[in-house]
């Protein structure tokens, strides 16, 4: 990322020296907390604790991760019953098979069916299976979702547009720092002829958190 910031003569046109618009965070007055981030980052580099490359690579890796990764895992489980069994038995090991890594975290995969619907929250903060879904959406981190989903899950799910029949049991799972949940949504009707790639396109982020179902095929 270019950081030639000496060209102050052009700052009023909101373009960086490379001709790209600054992100909004770049042209608001510096906050105390942003100054703290810059200072901490530079000190850690100066002290030899971190390198600039490590930091850049970590940010880039974060940008590359997306719910498409989790969707590949779910699609595989839909087409391969043996993989599904392994995934439900040991999520961390099963995602490793597909080249994804749970790191030190234990990944628990829960299957949604017509009888049982699982939904995930982190009441403590924002624990989330980032290695498979990328960074969590803002609502997942908000007080409103975290407070209410544990108490009135059906009402919260209906705000997401998901109304479940009374015959479906709803289970809410609270993540911890060391354990993350991935929901294995039910495979939609009418998808028997679809291959893994086509199926993966039906698997949206929210269905892997448990606030939605997988999309119906077109």
């Amino acid at each position: 990322m270019p950081h030639d910031h000496h060209d102050h003569g052009h700052e009023h046109d909101h373009l960086s020296p490379s001709g790209h618009p600054y992100q909004p965070d770049q042209d608001h007055p510096l906050t105390k907390w942003q100054a703290m981030e810059i200072a901490m980052r530079e000190l850690l580099v100066e002290k030899g604790i971190l390198t600039r490359e490590e930091i850049t690579q970590t940010v880039e890796a974060m940008d590359r991760r997306s719910p498409a990764d989790g969707a590949k895992v779910v699609a595989r489980a839909w087409v391969d019953p043996d993989y599904k069994a392994r995934l439900l038995a040991d999520g961390s090991a099963a995602i490793n098979e597909m080249g994804f890594h749970a790191d030190a975290m234990k990944l628990v995969v829960l299957e949604n069916t017509a009888d049982v619907h699982n939904v995930v929250v982190c009441t403590l903060c924002s624990c989330y299976p980032r290695n498979l879904l990328g960074l969590p959406p803002d609502w997942y981190k908000q007080r409103a979702y975290r407070s209410r989903v544990v108490k009135t899950p059906r009402a919260v799910l209906s705000e997401f547009g998901l109304t479940l029949p009374d015959t479906t049991q709803v289970r809410v799972h609270d993540s911890t720092a060391d354990m993350r949940y991935l929901i294995l949504p039910a495979r939609p009707e009418g998808t028997a002829d679809m291959d893994e790639t086509a199926l993966a396109a039906l698997i949206n982020r929210d269905s892997m958190i448990g606030v939605a179902q997988a999309s119906a095929p077109e």
Binding site: M1, Q23, P24, D25, Q26, Q34, E37, I38, M40, R41, L44, L50, I55, T58, V59, M62, D63, V121, T123, L135, P137, D138, W139, Q142, R143, A144, Y145, R146, S147, R148, V150, K151, V156, E159, D174
Partner: peptide
């Protein structure tokens, strides 16, 4: 905060700013 009263869910999503991603990376 689980179970505490709270308002409606705000579905707006902001793009993570570079400084936020860097904080995440530092953690």
């Amino acid at each position: 905060m689980g179970g505490q009263p709270a308002g409606d869910i705000d579905f707006d999503q902001h793009n993570f700013a570079l400084w936020e991603k860097r904080v995440d990376a530092l953690l």
